[in-house]
């Protein structure tokens, strides 16, 4: 500490101001990319996003190697368990929902169904009623 004159900010704070801005800029590039209609501009923003993300990661790594960043403490296993169980249930329900909707929906032409073995054949005959409007699905 003695060779340096009065420092403007501690090293950690200096690095952090840059890191915080990199985080903000990364988000802005992501938004800009999603809001672009010109494919060239979109690709440009995507590339800038990737580079900014890489720089943010690089600075973060350097800061944690220099003990300038204390990472949050890890969660206990039960917390992960809780979330995992809950979201496995959600996933199951959503899968059921999707299957249900798919089987009751106006069935598309049999060719487009491809490998869907779930579609029951009898329903098909009913839907082939000539009075039914043609399905464009």
């Amino acid at each position: 500490m003695q060779q340096q004159q009065q420092q403007f900010l501690p090293d950690g704070d200096l690095a952090y101001t840059v890191l915080a801005d990199l985080k903000r800029v990364t988000r802005e590039y992501a938004t800009a990319a999603t809001e672009s209609s010109c494919p060239v501009v979109r690709q440009q923003f995507t590339q800038l996003l990737n580079t900014s993300l890489a720089m943010q990661g690089e600075l973060f790594t350097a800061m944690s190697q220099q003990q300038m960043y204390n990472t949050a403490s890890p969660v206990i296993r039960q917390e992960i368990d809780k979330q995992m169980k809950q979201y496995q249930q959600t996933q199951q329900k959503t899968n059921q929902f999707v299957q249900q909707r798919k089987s009751t929906a106006n069935p598309p032409s049999p060719q487009s169904y491809g490998g869907w073995a779930y579609q029951p054949a009898p329903q098909w005959q009913q839907q082939n009623n000539p009075q039914q409007p043609h399905s464009y699905m």
Binding site: T31, S37, C38, V40
Partner: peptide, 14 residues
């Protein structure tokens, strides 16, 4: 990729 004229939004973001 075909280039399209810039929109006002894109110009603002740039």
């Amino acid at each position: 990729m075909n280039m399209q004229p810039l929109t006002a939004k894109e110009l603002e973001y740039i």
